[in-house]
């Protein structure tokens, strides 16, 4: 195991994970809004936000797929040491972490079952930048309309068409997170 893998976890897990979850909850409940999320120092290339989400949501019961750019020994060791999440192939993943290029094509991920749509993957997409501009978002969680710098539009439109099935997405950059649930209607501007 790489020595760095032992560092950078939560120092006060109950409180730090609680605050991180609230940010993750607000982000998923209000698509298009950006939320600060902190408490961990994951090894590069992971962003703080992505690392904190992994610590907050993943454990030995949640199979995780690491995209090519994250699939490095130090990241694997860090995830294993701090969460125990089994690292798996795309189709088995409950969580997936990587850049958009890593995760494409995203229609490989679990979208849930018609009677259990909750059994779907959550993607954590590392972004070079995150801002309230770009495709137009409407739907649950959005009072009128919101905008978010998504990596593309078509994949999210296709995902919305599967509703109530579909994957859910977090977008991370540095110490910020935004959510895009499957319920959001995404339109190019």
């Amino acid at each position: 195991m790489t020595p760095d893998a032992l560092l950078g976890g939560f120092t006060d897990a109950p409180r730090q994970s609680a605050r991180a979850f609230r940010a993750a909850l607000e982000a998923m409940a209000r698509p298009g809004t950006l939320w600060p999320i902190e408490g961990a120092a994951p090894p590069a290339p992971l962003s703080v936000a992505a690392g904190v989400l992994i610590l907050t949501l993943c454990d030995g019961t949640t199979p995780l797929y690491l995209g090519a750019s994250c699939d490095q020994p130090v990241v694997r060791d860090w995830v294993t040491f701090h969460t125990g999440a089994p690292l798996v192939a795309v189709h088995e993943a409950q969580f997936a972490l990587g850049t958009w290029a890593d995760l494409m094509p995203v229609d490989r991920f679990a979208i849930g079952l018609p009677d259990y749509p909750d059994r779907a993957a959550t993607l954590i997409v590392e972004m070079p930048a995150l801002a309230n501009q770009g495709p137009r978002l409407t739907g649950p969680g959005i009072a009128t309309v919101a905008h978010l710098s998504l990596p593309e539009t078509a994949a999210f439109c296709a995902n919305r068409a599967l509703f109530p099935q579909g994957f859910d997405t977090y977008l991370t950059c540095g110490g910020q997170v935004a959510g895009l649930p499957r319920s959001t209607i995404v339109e190019a501007v």
Partner: peptide, 18 residues
């Protein structure tokens, strides 16, 4: 913490599928 994580994951899926 493990129980909370399990509940938190359920809450997030609930939010995603109103």
């Amino acid at each position: 913490e493990q129980t909370k994580r399990m509940i938190r994951r359920a809450i997030l899926k609930g939010v995603a599928i109103p």
